[in-house]
């Protein structure tokens, strides 16, 4: 059997068109599609780039805001620390003792045996018994 290759494009509508094109017409559709695809790809890359850049800017701003908040907290912390340092100075404490008439004075040597915090009712129950002073054998009176 003698089989010959058949030129399918040479017949039918497509064949006619191809013939017409090959006769001098240009295939504009293919060019435009390719061109549009290139443009779309380019635009996609561009938009992607811009989107990522925008996201990055947003995250940079957020990071910066958080950093700023951390700085503010640190500053507040430092400020409070400085205030504490000012309030714990003896000069200030002495002034407050005088202002509120607390009538506090430092204990004498050997006078402190133990320190406790009592309510007035509890304090009233503690007897004022003489207690031996720890280091020297002399006697003191436990005060209320």
């Amino acid at each position: 059997m003698n089989l010959q290759p058949v030129k399918i494009g040479g017949t039918g509508i497509m064949g006619e068109r191809r013939k017409r094109n090959s006769a001098g017409a240009v295939n504009y559709g293919g060019f435009v599609v390719k061109f549009i695809l290139v443009i779309i790809a380019f635009m996609a890359v561009l938009i992607g780039h811009l989107y990522l850049r925008q996201q990055s800017v947003k995250s940079a701003e957020r990071t910066d805001d958080i950093k700023k908040q951390i700085m503010e907290v640190k500053a507040e912390n430092r400020n409070l620390r400085n205030h504490v340092a000012g309030l714990t100075r003896l000069e200030h404490i002495s002034r407050m003792i005088a202002k509120f008439k607390l009538d506090l004075r430092p204990a004498m040597h050997g006078q402190i045996i133990n320190i406790g915090v009592y309510t007035p009712e509890q304090a009233a129950t503690i007897p004022l018994t003489p207690l031996k002073v720890a280091s020297n054998g002399s006697y003191g009176v436990r005060g209320r």
Partner: peptide, 24 residues
């Protein structure tokens, strides 16, 4: 010195001349 020794918890080395009396 009296106050500083108290702060440093330096124990007295001599007997007190008179008993230490707490404030009522």
């Amino acid at each position: 010195m009296e106050r500083a020794l108290r702060y440093l918890y330096v124990q007295p080395t001599e007997p007190f001349p008179e008993p230490a009396v707490g404030r009522p």
